[in-house]
Design a protein around this nucleic acid. Sequence first.
DNA 1: AGACGTTTGTGAAGCCATGCACAAAGTTGA
DNA 2: TCAACTTTGTGCATGGCTTCACAAACGTCT
Lengths: 226, 226
Amino acid sequence: MSADPALRREIPDATVARLPEYLRTLSRLAEDGVPSVSSEELAAAVGVRSAQLRKDLSHLGSYGVRGVGYDVETLALEISRALGLTEDWPVAIVGMGNLGHALASYSGFVTKGFRIVALFDDDPALVGERVVDIAIRPLSELDDKHAVDPISIGVIATPAPAAQAVCDRLVGAGISSILNFAPAVLAVPEGVDVRRVDLSTELQILAFHAQRKALAAGHLGAAVLS
Amino acid sequence: MSADPALRREIPDATVARLPEYLRTLSRLAEDGVPSVSSEELAAAVGVRSAQLRKDLSHLGSYGVRGVGYDVETLALEISRALGLTEDWPVAIVGMGNLGHALASYSGFVTKGFRIVALFDDDPALVGERVVDIAIRPLSELDDKHAVDPISIGVIATPAPAAQAVCDRLVGAGISSILNFAPAVLAVPEGVDVRRVDLSTELQILAFHAQRKALAAGHLGAAVLS
DNA sequence: AGACGTTTGTGAAGCCATGCACAAAGTTGA
DNA sequence: TCAACTTTGTGCATGGCTTCACAAACGTCT
Ligand SMILES: NC(=O)c1ccc[n+]([C@@H]2O[C@H](COP(=O)([O-])OP(=O)(O)OC[C@H]3O[C@@H](n4cnc5c(N)ncnc54)[C@H](O)[C@@H]3O)[C@@H](O)[C@H]2O)c1
Ligand SMILES: NC(=O)c1ccc[n+]([C@@H]2O[C@H](COP(=O)([O-])OP(=O)(O)OC[C@H]3O[C@@H](n4cnc5c(N)ncnc54)[C@H](O)[C@@H]3O)[C@@H](O)[C@H]2O)c1
């Protein structure tokens, strides 16, 4: 009678980070009418080793069939459940500048259980504007809004100097999952989860490797060999 | 006479990923006129352990002074050099939709050696439009453009189905560093570096932890104990 | 029914990253 | 000049993740 291992065991962070990619690939296969895949095929499509894929999936339970592979629909459903995507996650975006607008009008994540329910910005010029049918409100209305329609995830798309203050408000309103686009480190109480997406960091990592490649190709070592 | 260790030794990926954050924090301290920091202070500001900070920095060389700490300006410069930010990195963006526009008009990364030199989009309605003084061109002009003004880093902001084709063109033009915003796994030849930024993945990881917290708080275990 | 080929699930080993603890190295003050 | 204090740089232990390799499990074909 032991239920879903996803809810009992601990799933390693590294595995959780890969599950969305597995799910996306499985969804595409399902659309294409593919009924089942082997770990080898799926791993190739995702760009990981098959052993890693199998170990990752083993943390969710045993949904494969030996000698055959995995049923695409079943596996997709199980990953969705493990990630919590069978539930509905109301999202609020704070900071409706360039990025906030792009995020709000982005249809990509509405499809997967994430639903934008509120948009906030303190600029009077923006308050009242409607984006995808949701009116932008001042952040001071967060609590009211929150009372009517709960918010699970807060997205911060304000400039960096405002990020901590915005974060504090979100946490104060009981939101414990935050996605931060501002280049700032946020201090939050225990139990609150912050993930950061940073453009600049990604470019800098690319630059590092590009430099290494340039040095390796151009002048080996760049310095004397001795 | 052994030169800059950053160029000789291997710097662990995990360290490279943290260097941009150290650099950002150091830049802020420099602006505030802070002359030096201890590993303890800097680590606290960035949100890591001081031991980890010291080990990370030790991969670049020995730029601290025992009993004192690190000179803010010097350390910032050394990290910049290690990351390759003392050079200039010309960037091209492909796909000037919502996200592409936001990226192009984002001033945040122009400041750090990254310079947007070309914008591409195949939509005739967009071609010719100027964003931050750069005209949008069709992707077919990539090679010409490239010949005149070299491009080091390509940013893909097209829909997922077009991503692989766009990627192939970029690689064909000799670009070996790619930042991909489309939810697609890109196949590239060896030596080409691809990093992906995925909104959806980040939200799904947040959802996973939110679900775990909800289960832990609400009904411990959710299933029978036996 | 039984043998054969295929693929999963997982112990075990190896690898990398993190955290600890301290000697070495520097500063300050007497 | 020397002792006391501070902080770095690093050897070592620890823990987690990845990869290997294979027995167990399943389907298929005769
Ligand atoms: N635009 C991009 O492509 C991009 C890329 C990566 C990161 N970022 C980061 O995302 C954030 C937003 O970028 P952007 O280009 O959209 O900036 P932006 O200036 O266009 O928009 C910021 C918005 O936040 C609002 N705001 C400021 N303080 C606020 C507060 N206290 N409460 C509520 N709203 C507030 C402003 O009114 C403005 O509308 C920045 O931190 C930026 O560094 C942007
Ligand atoms: N908008 C967001 O906030 C957001 C967030 C996360 C990820 N993304 C991803 O970023 C990508 C772009 O998102 P968007 O909202 O800007 O989409 P969009 O539809 O607004 O823009 C896509 C642009 O790409 C262009 N394009 C299509 N095929 C092309 C080709 N072969 N060559 C050159 N240009 C081409 C189109 O003409 C269009 O202008 C998508 O993959 C999306 O999933 C967007």
